[in-house]
Amino acid sequence: MSGWAAAPYTAALRDGGQLTLRGHDGWSCPLDVARWSAVADAADLALLRRCDGPVLDIGCGPGRLVEALGTRGHRALGIDINPGAVEATRLRGCHALRRSVFDRVPGAGRWGTALLIDGNIGIGGEPRTLLRRVARLVRPGGLLLAEAAPGEVDERRHVRLDAGSGAPGPAFPWARLGARALRREATAAGWACAETWTHRGRVFLTLTTPTGPG
């Protein structure tokens, strides 16, 4: 995940530049930094209407979802390992911490909803490990709203961030899952899929945890 803390991402958030994830074999995936830096759009708002209770936005980026949650009356916290993302979120007047999801997270076990949006199911490169970690952060009966990649993909690879000028950042593990693969990994991690829906070409899943022990 060190690539997300590299200079290309911070610079793109600051300057509105382009970013692309690149694999060593020529694979590439453009990142929509402009949308991340804008205000929440219609697809985002359809997602946020499903949130329940306090919300943890994992990999919050520049904070558009944390900001929109606040206007809807939710207590919300963004976490991100990139200092530029955390600063951008705080500049919106929102709460954010520079923190990995795998480190100590405030309110662990008490969040009503967690978010893995904008490709963040890929954090760490092992989705099942990530999903198990998130299950320990939400309360019993809590929700995870996750965005799947378009198409039926299931990719695990090491990638670098490329801003189009200068050398790409350091390699880090990443994953991309379509809806079918995400449902499979979520089930294996102890989640149940309550809903799959699309909005303007984006694909989302509502996942739930058991309501209590056993």
Rank of each mutant, 00 (worst) to 15 (best):
S2I: 13
A5C: 14
A5N: 03
A7V: 09
A7W: 13
A12H: 10
R14D: 15
D15I: 09
G16V: 14
G16Y: 02
R22P: 07
R22V: 15
H24M: 06
W27S: 12
W27H: 14
S28G: 00
C29T: 04
P30N: 07
P30L: 10
L31S: 01
D32F: 03
D32E: 13
V33M: 04
V33F: 00
V33T: 08
R35W: 12
W36C: 00
V39N: 10
D41T: 08
D44I: 02
L47N: 04
R49W: 05
R50H: 02
R50Y: 07
C51V: 00
P54I: 06
V55K: 00
L56S: 04
I58Y: 04
I58D: 07
P62N: 13
L65E: 12
L65A: 07
L65P: 05
L65Q: 15
E67W: 11
G70W: 00
H74F: 15
H74K: 06
R75Q: 14
R75L: 13
I79E: 01
G84T: 01
G84S: 09
E87R: 15
A88F: 08
R90G: 11
G93H: 12
A96R: 01
L97N: 09
R98K: 15
R99A: 06
S100E: 12
S100D: 14
V101C: 11
F102V: 02
V105R: 01
P106F: 00
G107E: 09
G107K: 12
G109D: 00
W111Y: 11
W111R: 01
G112Q: 05
T113W: 06
A114N: 07
A114K: 10
A114G: 09
L115H: 10
L115W: 10
I117C: 07
I123H: 01
G124D: 09
G124I: 13
E126F: 11
P127H: 13
P127C: 02
R128M: 05
L130H: 07
R132P: 02
R133S: 13
R136F: 03
L137P: 01
V138Q: 08
V138T: 14
R139N: 04
R139E: 05
R139M: 01
P140S: 01
L143G: 00
L145C: 10
A146F: 11
V153S: 07
V153Q: 09
R156L: 15
R157V: 03
V159L: 15
V159C: 03
R160W: 13
L161I: 08
D162N: 08
A163N: 06
A163M: 10
A167G: 01
P168H: 03
G169K: 07
G169Q: 01
P170F: 04
P170K: 11
F172E: 08
F172I: 13
F172C: 12
F172V: 10
P173H: 09
P173A: 03
A175G: 07
A175R: 05
R176Y: 07
R176G: 05
R180F: 05
L182H: 07
R183Q: 15
T187C: 10
T187I: 08
T187N: 06
G190V: 03
W191H: 05
W191M: 06
A192H: 14
A192C: 04
A192P: 02
T196I: 08
H199N: 10
R200L: 14
R202L: 12
R202H: 04
F204V: 00
F204S: 02
F204E: 02
F204T: 08
L205V: 12
L207H: 09
T208Y: 03
T209P: 07
P210H: 10
T211G: 11
P213F: 05
P213W: 11
